[in-house]
């Protein structure tokens, strides 16, 4: 029995009954974290604990409530997050919403630019064996360069040309996130099987008809898988882009200031903000994926 020409894109399975395992893992992490905080903070807390008497209650109190701990306890990070998100005005310099927004805006711009660039590259590569042979090595090579090495140059060069703020950071996001989109889309655009392509040939269809009516729709499941990776690394790119510039705003700037002043709680709060942003962005792409695939008739 011949199988149906193209695999019907199936919807990602919904997370049913996942709550319990996830809760267990979270609990285990929290327990390990709290226990590990005691020896890890010992350097800072030893003298204070000794001064207070050195009882078990003192050990726990000082290990988990140190102002500048080596590793802050989870509740300290949550408190800092709460304060930096809800207790200050969103546009205040201390607000993580403000910094999160600064990073998010350059992430989104970089993500959009990178995705469009990635798709355009993939279309070019699929249509030209010359380009696929000549461009592919460069595309792969581009990703072997450490972004931390190239980011300062990009920022400095663009800065000297008069581009500052959002755009240079976005370009670093774009540089990171076009890659998975190109790789995924090349695979997606070449995924139609020979029969579906032959059908287009019997219609004497133009290259643009083949692209828009066959190759592009076939590639949509591949596109969304790539976009999930791309949006997460676009955020990484935006944060990295904020580090070498001594940026005053953004999650990266917050991380940098935290490390200058030994504010570990602040660093961790910023890290958590970054993870929440990444998780939210990946989730949003997933929602878009479900909506689009459903409209494309995927099996529920």
């Amino acid at each position: 029995m011949k199988t149906e020409a193209a695999a019907v894109p199936s919807l990602p399975a919904r997370g049913e009954g996942q709550a319990f395992p996830v809760a267990v893992i979270c609990l285990v992490i929290l327990v390990v974290w709290y226990i590990a905080a005691i020896p890890m903070n010992w350097v800072v807390t030893e003298s204070k604990i000794a001064a207070a008497g050195g009882g078990a209650a003192d050990i726990l109190y000082y290990s988990w409530n140190e102002q500048r701990p080596v590793i802050p306890a989870p509740h300290q990070i949550m408190m800092e997050l709460w304060n930096a998100v809800f207790m200050v005005k969103p546009w205040a310099v201390k607000s993580l919403l403000y910094h999160g927004w600064v990073t998010l805006s350059s992430t989104l711009l970089g993500f959009v630019l990178g995705s469009l660039f990635g798709i355009a590259l993939a279309i070019a590569i699929v249509h030209s064996t010359f380009l696929s042979k000549s461009l592919m090595p460069w595309i792969v090579a581009s990703q072997t360069i450490p972004i931390l090495a190239i980011a300062p140059m990009v920022i400095v060069v663009l800065g000297s040309l008069g581009f500052t703020g959002l755009l240079p950071k976005s370009l670093i996001s774009m540089y990171l996130c076009f890659f998975p989109v190109t790789i995924g889309m090349v695979k997606g655009l070449t995924s139609p099987d020979p029969m579906q392509l032959d059908l287009m040939r019997t219609y004497n269809a133009s290259a643009s008809d083949v692209l828009w009516k066959l190759r592009f729709p076939s590639s949509v499941p591949f596109l969304f898988t790539s976009l999930k990776v791309a949006v997460a690394i676009a955020l990484t790119g935006a944060i990295v882009g904020e580090l070498p510039t001594g940026a005053v705003a953004g999650i990266g700037a917050r991380l940098l200031q935290g490390s200058y002043y030994g504010q570990t709680v602040q660093i961790w709060a910023a890290l958590f903000m970054g993870s929440f942003l990444a998780a939210g962005l990946v989730w949003l792409v997933g929602v878009a994926e479900r909506i689009v695939l459903k409209r494309m008739g995927a099996r529920p």
Binding site: K2, T3, E4, A5, A6, A7, V8, P9, D193, M195, Q196, D198, L199, R201, T202, Y203, N204, K213, L214, P217, V220, M296, G297
Partner: peptide, 18 residues
């Protein structure tokens, strides 16, 4: 073929699933 002189039916339906 360029004049679209024939209709072709393949071994599999080759329908576009979307």
């Amino acid at each position: 073929r360029l004049k679209r002189a024939y209709g072709y039916v393949f071994q599999a339906p080759a329908l576009y699933p979307w």
